[in-house]
Amino acid sequence: MAEDHVPDREPELGLRERKKRETRRRIADIATGLFMTRGFDNVTIADVARTADVSVNTVFNYFRTKEDLFFDRQDEIVEAAGRDFRERRPGEGAVALFRRRFFEGLDARAHQTAFHEGSEVWTRTVRDSPALLARQREIGRRAQDLLAEQLAEATGASPDDIAPRAAAAMIFAVQSTLVEQISDRKSAGETLQEMAEDVYAAAARAFDLLEHGLGAYAAAPDPAAPDGPAADPTIRN
């Protein structure tokens, strides 16, 4: 009988490190609650420290900036796409991987998709703050650059090969567009149930375009052709 495989586990943290991690998480959770209730620009570090019952210096010991308090898991976000790519299934291409992962996120109502209850509050908080919008773009760019590096390594691309960077940019563009559309609809008051069918159809459509290419999409009308421009068979209506 084959031996059971026991996955590697992270070494257990000591008491001191566990307490530091718990303190960091508690401060971040309290800060996020304040930001989402009052607005990011209306909350100071002193407000966070007072509510968390710690000193301002303690907050800065854990978080370099106020934006870091809101995006306290930004390193996880940056690493996620690269990690998913490294762990893709045998024979699974990049587009198929991220298509699968996006639909899994929709099914799980994952916060990365904005397809979850309360996403409109998060969206409003970010969109109302230029600082948070800038940091969100920075995080997205870091994640995209890391994925491009992973793609280049996996394909043996040369440093001047644009394909890995273009592929990463297109993957992130599709995901970002879908998330923004979901965020807009949720912010407009639609329920998850009301938008579910459209959200899944839009995701399928977007990843179809990514997988098969734009082809003749949006071709100009051709008066010489009796039925207009020929339809690209890879593009679904």
Rank of each mutant, 00 (worst) to 15 (best):
A148M: 07
D75C: 00
A96C: 00
E104C: 02
H212P: 02
L97G: 02
R101E: 14
F172T: 08
D29S: 15
E10S: 11
E211V: 05
D160V: 07
A49F: 04
R142D: 05
G82W: 08
A204F: 07
H5W: 15
P229C: 08
A224E: 14
F35M: 04
S183L: 04
A166N: 05
R38F: 10
R38K: 13
I182E: 02
E117L: 12
R100V: 09
E153C: 08
G91V: 11
G14R: 00
V59F: 11
P223Y: 05
T23L: 14
P11L: 02
P164K: 07
D128W: 00
A157F: 00
V199D: 00
G215P: 10
L97D: 08
R89V: 10
N237R: 14
K66S: 07
F85N: 01
R83H: 04
L132Q: 04
G215I: 11
H5D: 12
L69D: 11
P164L: 00
A52N: 04
T23M: 13
G213A: 04
F103D: 07
A114M: 15
Y62T: 05
D41G: 06
K186D: 04
A114I: 08
A131F: 09
D84H: 14
A80L: 12
A203G: 15
D198N: 13
A28H: 10
M1V: 12
A168N: 05
F60R: 14
S129P: 07
N61H: 15
R38E: 04
I235K: 12
G228V: 09
A202L: 15
D84E: 11
F207C: 01
R165Y: 02
F102E: 02
A168C: 05
D160E: 14
P223S: 05
Q144S: 06
Q181D: 13
G156E: 03
T123R: 07
Q112H: 15
A134G: 01
D161Y: 10
S55I: 04
L214G: 02
T23R: 15
D107I: 01
A216P: 12
D208H: 06
R26A: 12
R127S: 03
E149T: 03
A219F: 09
N57V: 08
R127Q: 11
G118I: 07
A108D: 11
G14C: 09
R86E: 03
E180C: 03
F85Y: 13
G156L: 06
I162A: 14
P159N: 08
A224F: 03
A152V: 03
D232A: 09
K20Y: 13
